[in-house]
């Protein structure tokens, strides 16, 4: 696997704030690599150091084999960038923006095809300021794809979008990858990282606290399974006593959560349902939950990954 991006000991401070502290990772060709972490974790600083927009204090950065500080022109020609914060003139029309940006590149892809591919065909004559958040984001993705880039940077691409728009964008990103492009994205949605990325670097306070595939990160927690349900009235102590060892019971109001960390012969859910039945406890809203990246973040940092 060829390294498209190599980062070794990247460090960046703003005054007294250490934004990025000694970060190292590589991104291979054709990968969807995600940086995930709460706001202020240092994702944008890292990605913009790779894009050549910010100057690292120290550390080695190579993108497509070049140093972004010294050869920014190569990056501008061969990568596509969607920034967390950027804009187009209010009154520019969708097609005008695409046509203009296409003219910057020696061999741009056909923007009329991108317009269709990104579902913006109907909006081609709409002014930028009249687009919805999701439409603007799709236009920015289209602009990032114009140079037919080897590598696409996407910084917080679904922030502020409703769930439906978010799913549309996820499909788009997968589609872009299927054309052989490498994608480096950031998000503060653990679910997004889990569903979309081949590998994920979890950032917190400027450091990478974990880096692996989402599946490996989750299984590193141990095989935890969870069953939750609500009881009418209170949970009799006999129930807890009858549960097999290696389980843990948590009660919040009428909501009961049972955790297990052991590999089991009988699925936890069967045991719980049987027990509830045999003890004639009336319950509702029973659910099983798989552990996810949120739990990984919680176990690594001791904090919830919420805004």
């Amino acid at each position: 696997m060829d390294a498209i991006v190599q980062v070794q000991g990247l460090h960046k401070t703003y005054g007294a704030t250490v934004a990025v502290e000694d970060i190292s990772f590589t991104v291979g060709e054709g990968e969807i690599f995600g940086m995930v972490g709460p706001n202020g974790a240092g994702k944008t600083t890292t990605i913009e150091c790779l894009e050549g927009l910010r100057k690292p204090d120290r550390g080695m950065v190579r993108v497509l084999g070049v140093d972004p500080q010294h050869d920014s022109q190569t990056l501008r020609l061969r990568t596509g960038m969607q920034l967390q914060q950027s804009n187009l003139p209010d009154r520019i029309k969708v097609w005008e923006a695409l046509d203009l940006y296409a003219s910057f590149y020696p061999k741009p892809v056909n923007w009329r095809e991108l317009l269709v591919q990104l579902g913006l065909e109907e909006k081609r004559n709409t002014a930028f300021s009249k687009l919805s958040g999701g439409q603007k984001q799709r236009l920015f993705i289209a602009l990032a794809l114009l140079p037919d880039p080897q590598l696409v940077f996407l910084d917080e691409l679904t922030t502020g979008l409703d769930p439906q728009a978010r799913h549309t964008i996820w499909d788009l990103v997968r589609e872009i990858r299927s054309h052989g492009k490498t994608i480096l994205l950031t998000t503060h949605f653990m679910e997004e990282a889990e569903k979309l990325c081949d590998r994920v670097a979890i950032l917190d306070h400027g450091k990478i606290v974990a880096l692996d595939t989402p599946a490996n990160l989750i299984s590193s927690l141990g095989v935890e399974e969870r069953v939750t349900f609500s009881v009418d009235g209170t949970l009799p102590p006999a129930f807890t006593a009858a549960l097999s060892t290696g389980t843990r019971v948590e009660v919040q109001g009428d909501r009961v959560t049972i955790h297990t960390v052991n590999t089991r012969q009988v699925p936890l859910v069967s045991e719980v349902v049987n027990l509830l039945g045999s003890q004639q406890i009336s319950f509702h809203d029973l659910r099983t939950e798989q552990p996810n990246l949120e739990d990984v973040f919680l176990s690594l940092t001791g904090r919830e990954m919420r805004e």
């Binding site: 927009l53 501008r76 920034l83 914060q85 950027s86 187009l88 003139p89 920015f140």
Partner: peptide, 16 residues
């Protein structure tokens, strides 16, 4: 306003 609104920022990522 191009600078303040991030319009130049977007252009900066291109060869313009």
């Amino acid at each position: 306003t191009y600078r303040e609104n991030g319009i130049l920022r977007r252009l900066r990522t291109t060869p313009a």
